[in-house]
Design a protein around this nucleic acid. Structure first.
Lengths: 221, 221
DNA sequence: TATATACGATGCACGGTGTAGCGAAAAGTT
DNA sequence: AACTTTTCGCTACACCGTGCATCGTATATA
């Protein structure tokens, strides 16, 4: 779908207006912030961008795809894993960044996108690859570092660990949004990793673990 | 507005067809199983039920409300907390019940409902009260029992504990559905509560007493 | 100049929603 | 029995967003 332009592969006709892309995405963000996902239409986005509706359709297949791109360009850069000498602390600090985003505008967007993805397999894949997978890969690398540093036992199930940690955040976002204070995020974190997370919690991990299905989990990321 | 019928408050005119309710809900379930939430329309439900479309609109405000009721009447009875002498085991066994439901037809329904609830505040409240809140109250009571029995430390944060446990399940359901084996559910559980929390024998007792009939429903006329 | 593509503008068929009005049916009330 | 009230099935309709097609025009390359 995406058209890659190289010197070997020159498009023949009138080139696409490069400004149109950003105009459309910015218009989408403006309208989304004002009216929410459901109330926003492709017609409205095109009008707000000063562009014909057909022009939008030439670049994205539907509204969800436009919003997905707008969301990624605006939000994704702001929630990278912070640096910290203690690896596990990097997880906690990033959870706090994510929670802050969830509390504000981006939270509404990601809610809408995940919701819409339940009905649109293509969007679901886009959310997964563009939003979930990258961060999850980074998190797994950090967990590996934490194990090497002795902050976590080496038999930790990284998938289950991340599902419980971030699952708690998404559960709040999508299902039970009452309060999401920094303290509560910390308590989510502490519930899984223990109150002093940078030290291995012998109480939780000292037994031999036999979780036979854990390695059978298939992941794309 | 809910219409409460008592002996003091008799409706004047022609009474509503009592069979229509169940006919509509059953028709909705049949169609949902066959075609999914998005493809199902109120028109189709009414036709399948052998009922006029206006009759459906007199009882529910929109499709999501009908589906919500159909879902609750079918699914909710099947996932009550099983009995077990070890309190914590009751949590684990119920997570397995829920996971089994998530893997099958009901999983698709609850996905659709939670998704739709992101755009419909009324439906969101209905999902919360009819689906989430009751089970969460039961779970908290069980946690209290577990603390009394010495299975959990008495300073445990029940909310955070449940958010991480069930958050992991819903995270799988809504965002990252690859495989959800029993073993993986156990590893989610073990990640939060430690492998030592009585994962030995799982005797299963049927116990449907958690769902006392009609739950809170959103209705129009 | 010839070719190829994007542009804005317009029109349109499609499908589902939610409401309104109709006469008939089914209950209670007098 | 006559009256009142409410639901019933049915039909009709306005509304809205979608997605596609088409048109003449603009802007690039060969």
């Amino acid at each position: 779908m995406k058209r890659v332009i190289t010197q070997m592969n020159l498009p023949k006709g009138r080139p696409r207006d490069q400004h149109a892309d950003t105009k459309i995405l910015e218009a989408a963000l403006r309208l989304l912030e004002r009216h929410g996902f459901r109330a926003v239409t492709l017609e409205g986005i095109a009008e707000e961008a000063g562009v014909a509706r057909t022009t939008v359709y030439r670049r994205w297949p539907n509204k969800a795809a436009v919003v997905m791109d707008a969301f990624l360009t605006q939000v994704a850069p702001g929630i990278a894993f912070p640096e910290h000498p203690v690896a596990v602390e990097r997880l906690r600090l990033q959870m706090q960044l994510l929670a802050r985003a969830f509390r504000q505008g981006p939270g509404l967007l990601i809610r809408s996108l995940i919701a819409e993805a339940q009905f649109d397999e293509e969007l679901r894949a886009a959310v997964h690859h563009g939003w979930i997978a990258k961060r999850r890969a980074s998190a797994k690398a950090i967990i590996a570092d934490a194990i090497l540093a002795g902050e976590l036992p080496n038999d930790v199930n990284a998938d289950a660990l991340l599902d419980t940690l971030y699952g708690g955040l998404y559960y709040w976002l999508l299902i039970d949004h009452e309060v999401l204070t920094e303290a509560y995020v910390d308590s989510l974190f502490a519930t899984v990793l223990g109150p002093s997370s940078h030290m291995a919690q012998s109480k939780r991990f000292d037994c031999d673990r036999d979780v036979p299905g854990a390695t059978s989990r298939i992941r794309s990321g």
